[in-house]
Amino acid sequence: MSAVTFNDVSRHFGAIKAVDAVSLDIAEGEFFAMLGPSGSGKTTCLRLIAGFERPTAGDIRIFAQPVQDLPPYKRNVNTVFQDYALFPHLNVRDNVAYALMIAGQGRRERYRAAQEALEMVQLAGYDLRKPSELSGGQRQRVALARALVNKPRVLLLDEPLGALDLKLREQMQEELKSLQRQLGITFVFVTHDQGEALSMADRVAVFDHGKIIQTGTPEDIYFRPEVPFVADFVGSSNVLPAALVAQLAGESRPASIRPERLILGAEGRIRARVTGLSFLGLATRVSLDAQGTRLTALLPQDAPRPAPGDEVGVGWNADDLHLMTAGAGA
């Protein structure tokens, strides 16, 4: 069964088409990521599911029930906000138990449920603290516990890890993923971080200018981008323009190739000049200019490194070149 369905949904703010005729289908129990640069419409889509925005046109269903006329407080979905939106005048326990207090549950009952939710996010013992006394990571866990305490069928997460530092973010990615597997709830996750989307999601929808450009598994998105935007935005793949591909492969379509699949050497399919090197730890990133087409190659640390200004040959295995279906290359 579909958890969330969009049918040609649009949300326009005056002349700005924040969401433009988007259709999507999120399966029950799926970890679904909406990925895109800021202003691409992914957050507006999330807000349409939560009910904070109403569609200008189209039809939204949550578990087959049309919801465009339902206010947020009548939808069985909960949200983890980007700024967490914890209530500053309530302590952690009352924040987590808020939904149950609103639902009219007794004090003992709701405090027990809050206790369980806090244990689930490993924050037991913080009940009586105020949100202002917590670190960013702890606040994030409280927001998560608060959204989960009501056992929603869909959990919406709006860039929840954006404000955390790298180490904590990686740890939370794993925890979120295992939490989702353990609870079996549908997660809809908005992010502009392609690494986050690829590592956590079962399926990813890539947004640009209010439209979904491509939907697929992380492997699809990463290795088989359909348009240059996806290739470029997701893991900064190299995009070869249609004219160049026509010379090389005989088909006038843009193509993508992963930076780590480029082979530098004396011979190669095309010639390029090295414009820069940067040390990344595991690998070295080599910036190349092939007659106006910018390319990036990732060299393992033990590979021989060219110097800036060198002329090199760039090669690849034919299998690694992925021809895209749409969109004219530069």
């Binding site: 904070f52 947020p72 407080y73 906000f81 939106a85 209530f87 808020y98 609103i102 639902a103 009501n150």
Partner: peptide, 9 residues
């Protein structure tokens, strides 16, 4: 919004 999201009218 969070309050409404958590079921409050």
């Amino acid at each position: 919004e969070a309050s409404g999201d958590l079921g409050a009218t």
